[in-house]
Nucleic acid binder design. Structure first.
Length: 953
RNA sequence: GCGGAUGUGGCGUAAUUGGUAGCCGCGUUAGACUUAGGAUCUAAUUCCUCCCGGAGUGGGGGUUCGAGUCCCCCCAUCCGCACCA
């Protein structure tokens, strides 16, 4: 019989299901290994060929590890909460739970067809109450912990309270012991790792929710592309910044690509510098202030008003010619002089109302106003004007800067625009300066020597930095510090389809519901839009109030703020559920704990994580933070969750276009006949009606009613389409569905072909042109086991040396390739092997049986079929990975290329066991060599074993 | 602007990590078997060529007996961040 994948594949998929082949226990004599895929968001569009790429790679690795004798955890689940399901619900009224369920069923069906070895008994769904119970539980733990800077780890907030009780400090002029419950809770909120605060957020009016920084690109929402504005709102946040340093440091311990580590480092954005206090010299107090020493803000009982700035260039403090505050700065109101008030207020209002997109688009445009106020440079005692400008950001540092126009390009632009003085304080060469008025740009580099800089003049930049910081520390007006670009993660979403917060409000103070009452189930609602009052959709829920006495959810009509309290209306963001799912897989049905100590003690952490690099600044940061927190409180046993990470490249689509004439919208011009690109409109056309860039005209006419009477300008009787590489997306009609390919070629061919396309990490456009070659390989491979009449026929004869060599070379190459995740070369190796064996007409069991095991990770269905045909009764998944034998690879003789200093070159054959000296002697003894050397002794002989001999004369 | 990566035939890619560049596959060409083939098999396929050879891994330089691989300078493309002081 022929290679009939249609029969083979469903048969063995059923067999694996029936036999629970991929079921894995948390206990084994074997070593453990955890292979994880980033679980998918089940969108309505179903899987396209890009999704399985990473899954196939990880599946190969997981199967390989099993064959190598590991107990392998390889689970799969669904990141099921999210905006698209909710947007769809708003449009159609269909409950997100229903559409999500349908989408999951569709995903599962598609995944099953590809033959993955997931242990589906461990499936998790983030929207499942049994799962999000633990997301909520973790949130409560975050709420109940603070970050202890001394111990550098999370500690229970009760410890902080005990400390406050004990020390009874003054807080904003009031003793801790004199504070009431509300004041105390507000104070503690400054420390909790999950906290409620008024913070500037990315507000997306169209989506009706706030978004995290990584969910906003170029001032537009990632989902939907709607405008985003900056707005001050009371929101839940996670104090991820407390972990900034550990998030940087942890990157040293993991095997991730350098580029991804760099992306994370950039996102965290650590910079070292100094915080410096600049005293104010307000015009009402026109006396020039005496030495800065008098203004030690911590110690002076009546401090002169001063403000803090952050700089990474303390060495340039002698070059400060003005100061700049961000428009949101609280000091502006106090310091602005009456004559500048109107102007400043106008500017601040304008700046605050600008959308993020406008602000980002006009980065190059300089704007700002003078406040009329002055500060004093603490080192030079100079009076320096204070400006307001939106090039200083509220969210970074202190929202205030010392401007050094000579050595900062932004300050330089500002100074030039407002004609402010520019003073050079750093020079590439010692004591050499030039007039900054002649400069076309500032000198930003951190190299060279200080000039015009008082006591640091002549020092190298690095020394000057240290010296200035020492000085200001000594003066008590500043200190060394580190700033991070990373912001706390905003954790509230004004949406329905997410985890509810286990929080209720008593007199405006949030309290977590008791842990034993979890999960706090998401209530049913009918209308998914925000309420008329602007409340999130949960405002529609009637059963959404907390009965504190009876510990249960009750109707909100009962709220009396005595025993019945309102519950939080926001829900958690998408990254909440995906931040700890890898740990839940270890023990997914545990209803007592997140996961048992035994389970995490056995599996430790993820050995191999496969997924897209697009999560570099989102999920992969949040998950690392989440894990570190769980580590601090003694749940996780490893500080880093993902030991090795492989980023599969995105598979792009290859879109096809037709060109519609602008003059005649029924006329379509073939690509080669388009003379003026402006005369036609390119229109995406479904790639399924295009073959080799040739349009199927009949199907095009049927595709859309408006094309039914289309006319064409053809070349050579054909309509040639244009193409472009774009993201694979429904709207561009360039989606390749894996089901179609499975139906046509089988899952094994699809799996092999996706690997054959190129390195897993590399982005590449999808192209089915080569799939035939892989399909041919399988037919050829099948024929090795079958005779001319297509009946199964393997011989028990002993293999020849040549056949053994082919086998062992293949084992060696494939093993090495899998270890270094180079699956495209493994596929090539299989092809070479099949070609060689076919030309030798080899059908020997001793060769073919190990090959069946070798190919099983890549093509499990055909391997299982052949494995059983060979007479095995157990699954090929339980077989042993074949070992190669070095002896079988050794040749009788080697061919050595020999060259004489690159001038002449020939090849000689030598016995395999010959030593370096033998080889050199043999080469020297050859007539060609003698002739060439002409009696002289060679100067140098370079011998590279089994490679080459070079003789230098 | 800053950071990271990549650049090899008509195309996807490979090269034992410094050792005969172009493996494997697609495509193309020729042939075999065929009623037929979109099945299978065989051969050729980097470019130029007076068929003697010559050039060749984005361009230029360097190190080396030897460079696709290492170093320096450009060029191009892709990705990430982007007024982060």
């Amino acid at each position: 019989m022929d290679y009939n994948f249609n029969e083979i594949e469903p048969k063995w998929q059923q067999y694996w299901r029936d036999q629970h082949t991929y079921h894995v226990e948390n206990k084994s004599d074997k070593p453990h290994f955890y292979v994880l895929d980033m679980f998918p968001y089940p969108s309505g569009a179903g899987l396209h060929v890009g999704h399985p790429l990473g899954y196939i790679a990880s599946d190969i690795y997981a199967r390989y590890k099993r064959l190598r004798g590991f107990n392998v955890l390889h689970p799969m689940g669904y990141d099921a909460y999210g905006l698209p399901a909710e947007q769809y619900a708003i449009q159609t009224g269909q409950h997100p739970a229903v559409t999500t369920e349908q989408n999951i069923a569709r995903y599962r069906e598609q995944l099953d067809k590809i033959g993955f070895s997931f242990d589906w008994d461990r499936e998790v769904r983030t929207c499942d109450p049994d799962y999000y119970k633990w997301t909520q539980w973790t949130f409560i733990q975050l709420f109940n912990h603070y970050y202890d800077e001394e111990q550098q780890k999370a500690r229970p907030i009760s410890e902080l309270v005990a400390k406050l009780d004990n020390e009874n400090p003054d807080i904003d002029g009031k003793k801790w012991s004199d504070m009431d419950e509300k004041e105390r809770q507000n104070y503690l909120m400054n420390f909790r790792l999950a906290y409620l605060a008024d913070i500037p957020v990315n507000w997306c009016a169209e989506l009706g929710t706030v978004l995290a920084n990584d969910e906003v690109v170029n001032g537009l929402s990632v989902r939907g592309g709607y405008p985003v504005e900056r707005k001050l709102m009371r929101q839940w946040s996670l104090r991820i910044t407390a972990y900034a340093q550990r998030l940087v440091d942890g990157l040293e311990q993991v095997e991730w690509s350098d580029s991804l580590k760099e992306i994370q480092r950039n996102w965290i954005g650590r910079s070292e510098g100094a915080a410096v206090w600049f005293p104010l010299d307000v015009p009402t107090n026109t006396n020039v202030l005496p030495g800065a020493q008098a203004y030690m803000p911590q110690f002076d009982p009546q401090p002169v008003p001063s403000f803090e700035i952050f700089t990474t260039r303390p060495d340039t403090i002698f070059g400060v010619t003005f100061m700049v505050l961000c428009p949101e700065h609280e000091l502006i109101e106090q310091i602005t002089t009456p004559e500048h008030k109107a102007e400043v207020e106008e500017y601040v209002t304008w700046a605050k109302n600008r959308s993020e997109r406008e602000r980002q688009a006009e980065v190059k445009k300089v704007s700002g106003v003078f406040t009329g106020a002055y500060a004093v440079n603490p080192l030079t005692e100079e009076r320096i004007p204070i400006y307001v400008s939106d090039y200083v950001l509220a969210g970074y540092g202190t929202g205030a800067i010392m401007a050094v126009p000579a050595h900062d390009s932004r300050d330089f632009a500002f100074a030039r625009h407002f004609n402010l003085p520019i003073r050079q304080v750093v020079s590439l060469e010692k004591d050499v300066t030039s007039d900054p008025a002649t400069w076309s740009e500032s000198m930003d580099a951190k190299t060279g020597y200080s000039v015009n800089s008082g006591f640091v003049t002549g020092m190298k930049v690095k020394e000057a930095m240290a010296a200035v910081i020492d000085k200001i520390e000594q003066m008590g007006i500043g200190h060394r510090t580190v700033n991070y670009r990373l912001r706390d993660a905003i954790f509230s979403r004004q949406r329905y389809w997410g985890e509810p917060f286990p929080i209720y409000y008593k007199e405006g103070i949030p309290y977590p519901i008791p842990e034993e009452c979890l999960p706090l189930q998401l209530p049913e609602i009918k209308d998914f839009k925000p309420t008329a009052t602007g409340e999130p959709p949960l405002g529609h829920a009637d059963m959404w109030a907390w009965d504190e006495t009876n510990k249960r959810i009750v109707s909100k009509s009962l709220i009396d703020n005595k025993t019945i309290f309102p519950l939080e209306l926001s829900t958690m963001p998408g990254f909440a559920g995906s931040s700890g799912y890898y740990l839940r897989y270890m023990d997914p049905r545990n209803d007592k704990e997140y996961f048992s100590h035994q389970a995490v003690g056995y599996w430790q952490n993820v050995d191999l994580y496969v997924g897209g690099a697009e999560h570099g600044t989102g999920h992969l940061i949040y998950a690392r933070f989440w894990n570190k927190f769980l580590f601090d409180i003694g749940l996780a046993v490893k500080e880093e969750p993902f030991q090795k990470l492989v980023n599969q490249g995105m598979i792009q689509g290859r879109s096809s276009f037709v060109y519609r004439s602008k003059a005649d919208n029924k006329l379509f011009v073939s690509k080669g006949l388009v003379k003026d690109p402006d005369s036609v409109t390119p229109i995406h056309v479904d790639i399924n009606i295009v073959d080799n860039d040739i349009l199927d005209i009949e199907r095009f006419r049927q595709w859309r009613p408006e094309f039914a009477d289309a006319r064409f300008e053809l070349e050579d009787g054909k309509y040639i389409c244009g193409w472009e590489i774009e993201k694979m997306s429904k709207s561009m009609f360039n989606v390749q569905n894996p089901d179609d390919l499975v139906a046509r070629y089988g899952a094994d061919t699809l799996r092999m072909y996706e690997m054959f396309l190129g390195p897993v990490e590399q982005a590449k456009p999808w192209d089915t042109k080569g799939i035939e070659g892989v399909f041919r390989f399988f037919k050829k491979f099948w024929r090795l086991f079958h005779d001319d009449s297509n009946t199964f026929a393997v011989s028990d004869e002993n293999p020849t040396k040549e056949e053994l060599k082919i086998l062992h070379q293949t084992i060696k190459k494939v093993t090495d390739d899998i270890e270094r995740f180079s699956f495209n070369t493994s596929v090539s190796t299989f092809m070479i092997c099949a070609n060689d064996l076919a030309s030798l007409k080899c059908n020997k069991r001793a060769i073919l049986e190990p090959l069946t095991v070798l190919i099983a990770p890549f093509a499990p269905h055909i391997a299982e079929e052949l494995w059983h045909l060979l007479g095995n009764t157990e699954s090929v998944c339980t077989a042993q990975w074949p070992q190669y034998d070095e002896h079988q690879l050794v040749e009788d003789s080697f061919t050595y290329p020999v060259s004489f200093n690159g001038k002449m070159r020939f090849t000689i054959e030598l016995p395999a066991n010959c030593t370096q000296d033998d080889a050199v002697a043999a080469v020297k003894g050859l007539p060609e060599t003698q002739k060439w050397l002409a009696g002289k002794e060679p100067k140098k002989i370079i011998f590279v074993p089994k490679r080459i001999i070079n003789i230098v004369c």
